[in-house]
């Protein structure tokens, strides 16, 4: 037996090596090349440039002076940037507090009572998520516009003066919440279908067992579904946070960050500094801040994923 084994090993090993060596390297090289090329031109080089620019003071197109960490120091005294930072984190906080529970309620009740309405309702709840952000912003303005907007018209028709006189987007105290409401309308659908797909993966016998024990719907949701969804909910919370860090489209198109700095986000400050004031150095520094913050949360997401490898 021993002799046989050794012979077999001897026979296969050199053959394997001979057969694989030349073609394999070429194949690997050619397969990875396109991806690496794309990333080198449009990612690695700009990343390097961002770090370099963030330490430069740029005035003209080619006039660059090294200033060290001056751009960063200035940022943390910049009213607009600080407002952006504040808004981004309160946006993340309120998304987790409002959007996730709402989505969980919808997802849970849609799967708990699956009937003829389930599929159409699911399609409706997901619909706003596929609308491009410009159209979402357009609809948001349609609903919240002063004088003729949907809510104001409704207030007029009902004779409620207080409702008809609200300026949702022009009032600094309300603008943030109006944009947030539009975002809730637009983005919750994704959380709904994601949570639905996760709830459907929970074994059916758990529910049968719970019902046999006389568990109510509330009890089943709290004692069985929520613990089972622990991991996906945490992932969604992180997605919410990273999404808020990158928030740009809706506030930019609905209010352009205004009135004043009421709806400024990190993305909008970057856009204002980089492409309106043409201050590349500062804009690059904001880019680095966004990168570092989202890196922290993305690593958190990956480390959560590692723990429950079977779900990935």
């Amino acid at each position: 037996m021993n002799v046989f084994k050794r012979k077999a090993v001897l026979r296969t090993e050199p053959a394997k090596r001979k057969k694989k060596d030349p073609g394999r390297k070429v194949f690997v090289f050619l397969c990875v090349l396109p991806a690496i090329l794309f990333l080198a031109v449009f990612l690695y080089y700009p990343i390097e440039e961002t770090f370099r620019l963030s330490t430069m003071k740029t005035t003209g197109l080619s006039n660059e002076v090294f200033v060290g960490t001056d751009n960063y120091e200035k940022l943390f005294r910049d009213e607009e940037f600080l407002a952006g930072l504040r808004h981004v984190f309160s946006w993340a906080f309120w998304s987790i507090i409002i959007q996730l529970p709402l989505s969980f309620f919808i997802a849970f009740s849609l799967t708990y009572y699956s009937n003829k309405l389930t599929k159409p309702l699911q399609a409706i709840f997901y619909l706003p998520n596929v609308l491009p952000s410009a159209i979402t912003a357009m609809l948001g303005k349609f609903v919240f516009a002063p004088n003729y907007g949907l809510i104001v018209s409704l207030g007029k028709a009902l004779g409620w003066k207080w409702l008809a006189s609200i300026d949702f987007l022009g009032n600094p105290d309300l603008a943030f919440w109006s944009v947030f409401a539009v975002a809730t309308w637009a983005y919750s659908g994704f959380y709904v279908i994601y949570l639905m797909s996760r709830i459907e993966q929970i074994p059916k016998d758990l529910r049968e067992a719970a019902e046999l024990d006389g568990a109510s719907m509330w009890c089943y949701a709290r004692k069985i579904v929520l613990p089972e969804l622990n991991y996906p909910l945490r992932i969604l919370a992180i997605l919410c946070t990273v999404g808020s860090l990158k928030l740009f489209d809706l506030p930019n198109m609905m209010t352009m960050g205004g009135p004043g700095n009421a709806t400024v986000t990190l993305g909008i400050t970057l856009y204002r500094h980089g492409f309106i004031n043409w201050n590349y150095g500062k804009a690059a520094a904001i880019g680095v801040v966004i990168f570092v913050l989202s890196l922290v949360f993305t690593i958190l997401q990956f480390s959560l994923g590692r723990k429950e490898d079977e779900t990935i």
Binding site: F42, L43, Y45, P46, I47, E49, T50, L53, L245, K246, F248, L266, G267, L270, Y271, G274, F275, Y280, A283, A284, I286, G287, V288, I290, F291, S294, L295, T298, I299
Partner: peptide, 12 residues
């Protein structure tokens, strides 16, 4: 790990 916003300026 890199958000689009980070590289906007150099990309442009």
């Amino acid at each position: 790990f890199v958000p689009v916003q980070m590289v906007l300026v150099p990309l442009y």
